[in-house]
Amino acid sequence: KPQCFCCSNPSDHARASTIFLSKSQTDVRDKRKSNHINHISHVSPGPLSKKYSSCSTIFIDDSTVSQPNLKSTIKCVTLAIYYHIKNRDSDRSLDIFDEKLHPLSREPVPDDYSRVDPEHKLIYRFVRTLFSAAQLTAECAIVTLVYLERLLTYAELDICPANWKRIVLGAILLASKVWDDQAVWNVDYCQILKDITVEDMNEMERHFLELLQFNINVPASVYAKYYFDLRQLADDNNLSFPLEPLNNQRAQKLEAISRLCEDKYKDLSRAAMRRSFSADNLIGIRRSNAVLS
């Protein structure tokens, strides 16, 4: 029986506060306190060549991501993930997301892989690589964050050093199939990550969907809430976030397509009695005309 989260789950209800923004507030308060002390003490930091941020590693000078809006959005979304990991309550996880049990590359996983928090720069580069290679959009990055917070809430998990890469990969995998017009198959991600197998991708996708209770619908109001909270996060950290909110037509498209995909996923789950399955054939849904109500 599906769990009931009343109106406390931000990935389902527009009035609930996003988890990432609340987890970032401790650092924001510390930064403001430090700035206030510096102001009282009349300590001048001198001319700054970069914007100030509570996370010293977020400013990355690269030209790999050519779209400014995409680059800025990925920086903000990965900063949200950074705060999720940094200010987590515990280390609740599942084996399917454990990088030691299911490595993404042939390189040995460090012995301290489950104890060392990743810097924001590392999270950004991981997500940037996937988005650049798969040609995903800025909107897809926001939907990725919605699915990530939905997973943590539904499954009562924490995103932590041991599981962050596979949880983020699973969220991107679903978001790219639901939102982006560019057809991205599981095997495409295997070409990007090289050492991961299609069977592993399919298995992780199945677990991710089951933990979401096959709820991949993203209401336009929820998307808008995440968008504006990301703007707040960007403002708190002096980051640029130029992406415009969805217009009414695109908002309706997102909601209609995510509903269609949700129904299709449920059909696949009823038909898939084998160990793992892929929802790659969902990609065809986006080519059909969704009814916008």
Rank of each mutant, 00 (worst) to 15 (best):
K264R: 13
Q25V: 04
H42V: 11
F5C: 10
S49H: 12
Y52M: 10
F208A: 01
G170P: 01
I159N: 06
D180G: 00
D229M: 08
Y154I: 03
S114N: 15
N202H: 06
Q252A: 10
D280W: 00
D12M: 13
Q182Y: 06
L260S: 11
N38Q: 14
K100N: 12
T57I: 08
V77R: 00
S114W: 09
K75D: 09
S278N: 00
L101A: 11
K86L: 14
S276I: 11
R29Q: 09
N69D: 15
A256F: 00
K33C: 07
D263Q: 13
F97Q: 03
N238M: 09
D27Q: 07
A271I: 04
T57F: 09
M273P: 00
C160R: 14
I142D: 03
Q249K: 13
D181K: 03
I123S: 01
S63A: 07
A290Y: 04
K23M: 05
R231I: 07
K165T: 01
W179A: 09
A162L: 12
I74D: 09
V218R: 06
D89A: 14
M201S: 04
D30E: 10
L136S: 04
S90R: 12
A279E: 04
S11I: 03
E149V: 07
F214I: 04
A133T: 13
F214T: 01
R250L: 05
L70N: 03
R29A: 09
R88P: 11
N281G: 08
S90H: 11
P118N: 08
L174W: 00
S17G: 05
F59S: 09
N163C: 13
N186K: 02
S49L: 13
